[in-house]
Amino acid sequence: MTRILLICSAALLLTACSGDWGWYVVDPTNPKGLINLKFMISGLKYTVLLSVTAIVISIVIGLLVALPGLSTNKWLRGFNRVYVELVRAVPILVMILWVYYGLPQLLGITITVFWAGVIALALSDSAFEAEIFRAGIQSIDKGQYEASHTVALGYMDTMRFIILPQAIKRILPALGNQLVYMLKMSSLVSVIGMQELTRKANELVVTEYRPLEIYTVLLLEYLLLILVVSAGVRWLERRWETDSLNK
């Protein structure tokens, strides 16, 4: 992966010499470029904060929606289906606009750009998290519930101590994917003025008129961020794997 990155950046730098490029706007060796670059990178904090907050909330909602989906009660299962189908059908951008402009009017409250973004992203993603949790929990052997019954654990304890720890380990790769997806989708929150990576790039393009270079940097920012996150998730998986084998 790092090799591909190096080749890509080398290729970009080479074509940069061919004339149409104006790397000076983001060249860290000249003062103006450095300021621009810092301006762009300053959005990173919000991209990460937004995505991480949203994913945590969406995991919690996802779990709360998944559990009724596994019930023997058909109304609870129905709630799960309706929630998943409805939420999945709404485009994320529409969800963001609706939460930011619509929801405050509906509830008579004010809502910050950050929280509107978090809520919209978390809601959108929660339907997918619910499906992931449902599949993960369903993959756990029925014998685990029966054994749990024989040591007198109730539903909550069974979930907390027996089922979820095993299910989460299995769905970790899928949860990692959702985090990556969230980091990418957070760029959409720029439309309501969230000062994250994409918004910063857009603002710079307006003042500098060098979309090619600025968006290329933006692209590399996401690429790097996501490579780092993916590596982190894989590391975590490996650690859990060896934990349960070698302890």
């Binding site: 054994a147 040591v151 007198a152 654990l153 095993q166 380990k169």
Partner: peptide, 18 residues
């Protein structure tokens, strides 16, 4: 049907504790 993510001791103590 042992709990694979818990040690032998944890398998035995979970019920009594909870």
């Amino acid at each position: 049907n042992l709990f694979p993510h818990l040690t032998v001791l944890e398998n035995l103590t979970l019920g009594p504790v909870r």
